[in-house]
Design a protein around this nucleic acid. Structure first.
Lengths: 242, 242
DNA sequence: CGAGAGGTTGAGCAATCTCAACGGGGGTGG
DNA sequence: CCACCCCCGTTGAGATTGCTCAACCTCTCG
């Protein structure tokens, strides 16, 4: 249970290994941040572990939101669909992220595993009770929501006003940032070109072409479709256009 | 103070008139919803009234977030800028809306009055204290954040995947919905074509042309640039593409 | 009365999409 | 074990949507 707390309260990506939920996995837990709590009360929240294979859906847009989740490893994508099948990926979630905003009655988007995923699942009702017991958790959640809102606005700026080159450059930089990559290190790209396209509001062909163009211009290298490396960070930042 | 509470707790747009903040305006208050509260404690929050003329900025992206606000009348727009001046409007706020998410140290976007605006302003520190005193307020805020997040995701879908026609049709329907317009009633369009374009990720020319095209197709009428009317709702919904 | 802001319309252009072909890798079934 | 298929990614050529540039109109405000 502490891990949920720490997952929500801790921000840095460096201690991901220590965030695994002890109710869900076997891994013992590290210190639990600043929240004082009654562990047995927490245990009452009937958390359960869960795993998803790559490509497996967790829930669909419009399903009743009976559970909330925290990701302990792997990557998920959130998406929305238009009736004719056009898709918009609204975000990628990684270890430590929270899923299924506690106050909507139904999920507002679909969630699907990009890589194999491990998570903690909680009955929503139990989670809501937990919020009452631990005000600090509620504050953390509010902070999380604010962060997500800021990210959403940034993405609106990208989708509404940036060119394909700028979108791809921004995306690469964002990937690097979330992985705390140092200059020259490999960056993991777990998602497919289709996922990237649906995230950036482009087609897969444009994603592919633009990556090729950045590669040919010497800003990045792309050893295989699921790895890349930033070669000229400054020029890539310029290409990202703010 | 009750009005802030009710502004945050009440959802429906129908009682806007009863939401005016009594600390800021002269209007007496209606019932205050479900929150028990100590009024004098609330008054301690040093709320102040404020007015803005159309076009006047309230704050800019990146400014230290020393105050939070609730809108009591008029319309505001939120926007983000790229270094070269491209703009994305991330939302329009109306009476009852909340401004300046309490947990960020700096404003993540700029706010500017579209029409003359009245609002309540609170020192952020006082507002945060208030949150501690009234857990229900915090819950309401969390609910607000969830709603905004859902709207943001919907907007990402629009920006990433919808055509110009679909964007305009969606926008018109959204305007009608927020004004609780009945079929055939006039819809107010307080913002300029530039604002609409920056909200929908289009140019003003495309906005203008597309509205003309919807008008010529008989789906709407546009008596003047700041008013319109839905004539064939079903076809407009179809045009909005989900 | 002139200037400027906001809006509409037209013509041409270009970024991005669509359609199509092709190649590699992995899983599956014969 | 191998052939086949399917998914994923890349590349090319042509089509199209929406942008750019430009003219013009109306209304408001000095």
């Amino acid at each position: 249970m502490e891990s949920i707390m720490s997952g929500l309260l801790a921000g840095s990506a460096s201690d991901i290994e220590q965030r695994r939920c002890e109710l869900c996995t076997v891994r013992p837990l590290a210190v639990c941040g600043s929240v004082a709590m009654d562990r047995s009360a927490c245990l009452a929240a009937i958390a359960r572990g869960a795993q998803l294979a790559a490509g497996e859906p967790l829930f669909h847009e419009g399903d009743p939101a009976v559970e909330v989740f925290t990701v302990t490893s792997g990557m998920l994508k959130l998406s929305k669909l238009l009736p004719d099948g056009r898709r918009q990926v609204t975000g990628f979630l990684m270890a430590g992220d929270y899923l299924g905003l506690a106050f909507a009655e139904r999920y507002i988007c679909s969630a699907e595993a990009v890589t194999p995923v491990r998570l903690c699942r909680f009955a929503r009702s139990a989670f809501l009770k937990l919020l009452d017991q631990f005000p600090a958790l509620e504050k953390a959640l509010l902070g999380r929501a604010a962060t997500e809102l800021a990210a959403a606005q940034q993405q609106m700026l990208l989708l509404g006003r940036k060119s394909a080159h700028e979108r791809i450059a921004s995306f690469v930089l964002q990937l690097a940032e979330r992985q705390a990559t140092k200059e020259g290190q490999w960056i993991d790209v777990p998602m497919t070109r289709t996922d990237i396209a649906d995230y950036l509001g482009l087609t897969i062909e444009t994603v592919s072409r633009t990556l090729t163009s950045l590669r040919k211009a010497g800003l990045i290298t792309v050893p295989d479709p699921h790895h890349l490396q930033i070669v000229q960070r400054a020029r890539l930042v310029a290409e990202a256009g703010g």
